[in-house]
Amino acid sequence: MKKVLEVKDLYVSFTTYGGEVKAVRGVSFALNKGETLAIVGESGCGKSVTSQSIMGLIPTPPGKITGGEILFKGRDLTKLKEPELRKIRGADISMIFQDPMTALNPTMTVDEQIIEGIIQHEKLSRLEAKQKTIDILHLVGIPGPESRLKQYPHQFSGGMRQRIVIAMALVCEPEVLIADEPTTALDVTIQAQILELFKAIQEKTGVSIILITHDLGVVAQVADRIAVMYAGKIVEAGNRRDIFYKPQHPYTKGLLNSVPRLDREEAELISIAGSPPDLFSPPIGCPFAARCDYAMEVCDRVYPFKTIMNREHHVDCWLQDERAKRLLAVK
């Protein structure tokens, strides 16, 4: 499949009074045309920082991309200046932010906020931009958009606000859409509607989607491939079937076990004991070792090599080493 976007060995740090926070530590992945890639993990693992790096939205200072490449159409986005990034941001790569109420300007009507992006990136008259706004609101399922153009964000429900934010991101027909926790603040029924909307839009437009989430239920419905992120690193990645039916990393297994399931008799949820490591001074070995039931001495001392399970599935875990497999077999 054709690669639309490729992130290679990305490092991002933030300088604070307490020291340097190493938020993203060597992240690599590719996004193919027309697919949905989900990046999952606990809060603070570096998911949103990775997405903001792609968009060129890391505030400098205190943030800084200290290494790696973000390749889009043969150009390294980390090397571009702000005026060049502004031409790409919103036109070729768009982002849906976590909270639609804070993403929208409460003092501007809906049409003003959407038309602003169209005029910025496309040579259209205001009348043409208005018609395009109506068309995109139809596409995302806003009923009677002609009569709602002059309304303000507070006059819409949470689900409708999220649809407006999606419309703003799609109106310039981007090749890549980054959705950062797009269903977090919504109830289950509206979540399902938004996820169906993503699938319908992808079928119609062919847009490639990066979905940032901690909710594996969301991932199961829409993702083609999944990257599991922990302490600034991608510890496992594979297609949906690999991750849900053949997980190899203990952290991935822990995430799956902590999801409520109807086919499980136990009423109590199985949580992952402990807390993520301090990224002011991240561990030199496997970052999950302190919370892992299978941790060995080597896990604390050396970061595990990448093990290729198949063409799409890879994992960073010492349990895949043949010596560890023999040891576990003896036990």
Rank of each mutant, 00 (worst) to 15 (best):
V40L: 06
L85N: 04
I93K: 00
D263F: 08
F288H: 05
Q120A: 11
A290H: 13
H214I: 06
R75L: 08
I190M: 13
S13Y: 08
M95K: 03
R264N: 11
A290W: 07
D263R: 09
V21E: 02
R240K: 15
L269N: 04
V12I: 09
G274W: 05
H314V: 12
D92V: 01
V315F: 06
H138A: 12
M229G: 04
A223R: 01
E6L: 02
L137K: 02
N257W: 04
V140K: 03
S48R: 08
K81L: 14
I284Q: 15
P83K: 13
E265M: 13
K73E: 15
T36H: 08
N257T: 05
V140G: 01
I209N: 04
T252W: 03
R291S: 03
G74M: 02
K150E: 12
S275M: 13
I96K: 04
I65E: 02
E236N: 05
C45N: 09
E20H: 06
L279F: 11
G117A: 13
G254M: 03
V171K: 02
G158R: 02
E265P: 01
L139D: 10
L216D: 02
H313T: 03
E236R: 02
F305Q: 15
E181N: 01
H154I: 07
G41P: 01
A200R: 15
A30K: 09
P100T: 10
P287H: 05
L186A: 08
N257K: 13
M101V: 14
M296I: 09
R301V: 12
F198H: 04
E146Y: 11
A267N: 12
G26R: 00
S281R: 11
V24Y: 00
T102W: 01
T15P: 00
L10S: 04
I142H: 01
E322H: 10
K132S: 08
F29I: 09
Q52N: 14
A324Y: 00
P106C: 11
R261K: 13
